[in-house]
Every structure is written in C-alpha cells, then in structure tokens.
Design a protein around this nucleic acid. Structure first.
Lengths: 111, 111
DNA sequence: TTACATAGTATCCTTTTGTATACCATGGAT
DNA sequence: ATCCATGGTATACAAAAGGATACTATGTAA
C-alpha cells in the first residue's frame, strides 16, 4: 500500500486510506500515543514499548517522519542523542486516535 | 495481528488496535462506505469496487461479519442471492470513518 | 587503550496479506 | 439436455510486513 501510493506520487483514492497508511503500521499508534505525552528519546521509546525491535522502531519512526507526523532531532553528541516529537500535523492525530480508542473500547466490551 | 488476537480469545492490549483490526483490511473501509449507503448484494459490491477480486471481497466481508460489523443474509434461491448490510455495531463505525476521512483530506492537501 | 553507551544498519528469515486463475453447485429458462 | 447467473472455493503464488540477530560508528571516561 505505502509503496504503491508513494510511487504514484502520494495520490490516494480515498482519504480514509491515506489516514490508514499513516497510522497503519504495527507500532505507529503506540508510538504516537507516547509522543502525545511529550518529546521522547529513541531509548525512551524502546523502554516504553519493550516488545518492539530496534529495527521496527526505527522504521516506523522514519515513516512517520517522512509523512510529516513526527520530527526527528539529532544532537551531535557521543553517545548519540536523538529526540522524537510530534509535529503540528502529528498532534492533529489525537482526535483520530481518540475516536478509534472509544470505538475499540465499545467493541471490546461487546465481545 | 488478527490471528494472534483471536487465538488469545479476542484480548487486545489497546482499543485503538482493536479498531485497526476490524477496519484494517485493504478493502474494508470501502466496503463499509458502500454499505453505509444501504444493503448491497455481493454482485453489487463487486461492481462498486471493480478492483477487488472475488476471493478478497468474500474474505473481507466474512471477517467483518465475524467481527459483528456486517450481517450476511442468504436467500435460498438459484442463482444465489446474498445480501450484505451493516449491523448496529457496523453503523457505529460511521463517525470513525468520518474523522479518518477528514484527517486524511487535510493530510492530502498538505502534501 | 580499552570499554561503554546510544542510535542506529545489514542480513536473513518467517508470517501475513493479497493476487491470479481455475473450478464448483444449483435450479430455472431455452 | 444444456446453458446461464450467482456466489462462492481451491490452489498456487507474489509481495509486503515484521522479527531475530549480529554488526557498526564514535567521543568520552576510566
């Protein structure tokens, strides 16, 4: 999905699918959830989401960054320090996650 | 994702992810979109979504059905007639799709 | 000079998801 | 008798997503 849309120059047939592509990765909503709480270092996110591998965390963050939802700030230090935060656009995802959260809760209760 | 959650007895760590599992399939939101418009026969959905293969349309509909979002009504006729409609739960997805639709539109405009 | 911490890459593999294509069952119309 | 339409299944395959594991670069501190 991502690949295809990107090759076609970010043209999506449907806005809902565009949203799905941005937040659809396995770890993205958890990442966004934690970033809504404030700026986090890479290592902090790893600690907050222990199940995610380093490779996955990196790739999900980079995709969010290239979609403009996340800002990546590299500090020229050793050992490295990289901070991730939500952009203005990224913050607008909060109501989206909220609605999905509420629907999901209702769904879980039923089953 | 689906498999795992189902084997664990539909226990989701996160409500947002539960929602993602329900509407996350490649064709589900389009299907739901059309069903929000009213009950549709299988062949109607095929015509409305020409890119989807029969197999995919069937499997996405069956997943939506087993999640309780879609109702499947089989009429004992030949040739067969099967109608799909949204359940009460399925209809509650409308506001979710709407928020995602709006966010997606805003996202597309920016890029 | 050696070890350490951080934030990564690289490689290989498995699982999941989706596609392509062919086939099937049925009862009524011709 | 046979052909048709509908709503599927079955099988094989391709691609995408994700996971496991090992490796790397670098300035600083001991």
């Amino acid at each position: 999905m991502r690949e295809k849309a990107e090759k076609q120059g970010n043209h999506y047939n449907c806005p809902v699918e565009a949203t799905m592509e941005v937040i659809g990765g396995k770890w993205k909503v958890i990442i966004i959830h934690h970033l809504l709480d404030g700026t986090k270092r890479f290592s902090e996110l790893r600690r907050l989401i222990p199940q995610v591998t380093q490779r996955m965390l990196t790739s999900q963050l980079r995709e969010l960054e290239s979609d403009g939802a996340v800002h990546r700030e590299v500090y020229p230090q050793v050992p490295p320090k990289v901070e991730y935060s939500l952009t203005k656009l990224g913050k607008t995802l909060e109501p989206v996650l909220l609605v999905m959260h509420d629907w999901g809760n209702n769904f879980i209760e039923r089953s």
